[in-house]
Design a protein around this nucleic acid. Structure first.
Length: 492
RNA sequence: GCCGCGUUCAUCUAGGGGUCUAGGAUGCCACCCUUUCACGGUGGUCACACGGGUUCAAAUCCCGUACGCGGUACCA
């Protein structure tokens, strides 16, 4: 029986939670739920220059919105805390010391200028980006080249320094990625990564390895951008005598035009990129989650519609795809409509309330639910309900194209005649209003369509919407009659 | 440039030597349903990047090329 699965989502609080980040979080969450393991949130705030104070709150809000409940994290705690890297510095310092003492890392004093000078010196057409590595570390100022007492003196002096990983020269690091299979790197292509920055903070690489080990993380699921740093991480695990977690690197989410889905490209294409934007755009979390889950993973069956628990059951790391997936707003909207249709009218009313009230002011509960019932099958987003303003107030205008198409010479007279019949109805419901119209059509020897379309226009101001008689009932007897007469007067 | 990863309809994808004249979904088009618009239903449109090999047989395996993406930071 293997150890219980522990996974983490480890975002850096440098901005709003990105949609790609949410997918990474989702896959981790799914694995945790499916195995009965733990889903941990760790805030990787080791870069002071890029730190955004509101980001952590946004990450928390985004995960909560999507329904990805945390088992451990900075706000609810857990046995493996603290969950912010800025609060775990001692751990990193200890690990760095161990690495240096074991000869797997070293202290370096080079300034940025000196490193740049080395690179300039080494730069050739064949090698435009020389690294700080086994081939160059010998000519730099570090504890490998300087006499021990000099190093000690500098350190005692408080000289600025970093700790670098001492990457061996000629090794091949091979590992198994659960998505990609066997991957290998030659250490000659890996440079001596800075592990501790001159401000004393660890870089991602050190902190990540230390924390994944300290927190008992068994499975790392993260973006493909980390694949090439795996050898560095593995070298550290080996040097520290720790067992590395299982690894799975996710293909990236691409913009609809194929490039990287960056803030900038997304803005240009008019697609949201942060989770907060999806929420504001009126997408349902269930739909976003479903869409994201299928962007790079598939269940191997024809099922496309999933709830979060269904996803947790069907999820399988081995079925994650290998190639980048382009984001498609069309498909997301389809998922949104599908998930909307699975909600009750009460739930839709709830989710549409804000947009509706922004459009027409306060609306009573029952009116909102009635409206939701009527428009249920027609909504792509709950907020679309706000477009049917006629369900809540008299139409202010009549769609010109609709008038042109549907309002004929006899329309005013027919609408007035129908208004009279509706007004006289003792029972006002779908059956009686429809019967009244059929009778009128017969009496006037006018086609049903000659009446129904103008009446819709008169009552709603548009040519589209739910069934007319259902709409009439929702609007109410008096209001319907009044609207018909007013339209007959106005449109002539 | 170098290193790594990838490449099936416009898009998300199934498939992993014969069952593939390549399946599903979105999009688009048409038709049906229908008082409108949707929903739903039916049908259509549309793909194995290219070139070599291996094999009786390749979308599937191997090699190369092209293209794309990632990395090449004291950012994550």
């Amino acid at each position: 029986m293997p150890d219980a699965v522990r996974v983490r989502f480890a975002p850096s609080p440098t901005g709003l939670l990105h949609i790609g980040g949410l997918r990474t979080a989702l896959y981790n969450y799914l694995l945790a739920r499916q195995t009965g393991g733990a889903f941990v949130l760790r805030i990787e705030d080791t870069d002071r220059s890029r730190y955004v104070p509101e980001a952590e709150q946004d990450i928390l809000a985004g995960l909560a919105w999507a329904g990805l409940a945390l088992d451990e994290g900075p706000t609810q705690g857990g046995d493996a805390g603290p969950y912010r890297q800025s609060e775990r510095r001692d751990l990193y310092a200890d690990a760095a010391r161990l690495l240096v003492e074991g000869g797997h890392a070293y202290v370096a004093f080079d300034t940025a200028d000196e490193i740049e000078a080395m690179k300039a010196r080494r730069r050739t057409d064949a090698n435009p980006t020389p690294g700080y590595d086994a081939s160059t570390r010998g000519e730099m100022a570090n504890s490998l080249t300087l006499p021990a007492d000099d190093v000690a003196a500098r350190l005692a002096d408080g000289a600025e320094h970093v700790v670098r990983l001492r990457v061996p020269e000629d090794q091949t690091i091979t590992f198994t990625d659960r998505v990609r299979g066997e991957v290998s790197f030659d250490t000659a292509t890996v440079d001596d990564q800075v592990l501790v920055k001159s401000d004393g903070m660890p870089t991602y690489h050190l902190a990540n390895v230390v924390d994944d080990h300290a927190m008992g993380i068994t499975d790392v699921i993260r973006g493909e951008e980390w694949l090439s740093s795996v050898p560095k991480h593995l070298l550290m695990y080996r040097a520290l005598g720790w067992t590395p977690p299982r690894l799975a690197h996710l293909p990236l989410i691409l913009s609809p035009t194929g490039g990287k889905l960056s803030k900038r490209s997304a803005d240009r294409l008019g697609i949201p990129v942060s989770v907060a934007q999806y929420r504001e755009a009126g997408f349902e979390p269930e739909a976003v989650v479903n869409f994201l889950a299928l962007l790079g993973w598939n269940p191997g069956t024809d099922q496309e519609l999933f709830t979060l628990p269904e996803l947790a059951e069907a999820f399988d790391v081995e079925r994650i795809g290998t190639s980048g997936a382009q984001f498609s707003l069309d498909k997301l909207e389809w998922f949104n409509g599908q998930h909307l249709r699975r909600l009750s009218s009460e739930e839709i009313a709830d989710r549409a309330r804000q947009s509706v009230e922004t459009a027409v002011g306060p609306v009573p509960d029952d009116a909102l639910v009635t409206a939701a019932e009527l428009m249920h099958e027609r909504l792509t987003k709950a907020s679309d309900l706000a477009q049917a303003t006629y369900l809540f107030q008299d139409p202010e205008a009549y769609d010109p194209a609709g008038v042109k198409k549907r309002w004929k010479d006899d329309s005013a007279a027919l609408v007035r005649a129908y208004a009279d019949r509706v007004e006289a109805l003792e029972t006002f419901d779908i059956e009686t209003t429809e019967a009244a119209m059929r009778e009128l059509a017969e009496a006037e020897d006018a086609g049903f369509g000659r009446i129904v379309h103008p009446v819709r226009l008169a009552v709603t101001g548009t040519t589209v919407g739910a069934g007319l008689f259902e709409t009439l009932v929702a609007v109410g007897q008096d209001a319907s009659v009044a609207r018909m007469r007013r339209a007959a007067d106005r449109l002539g």
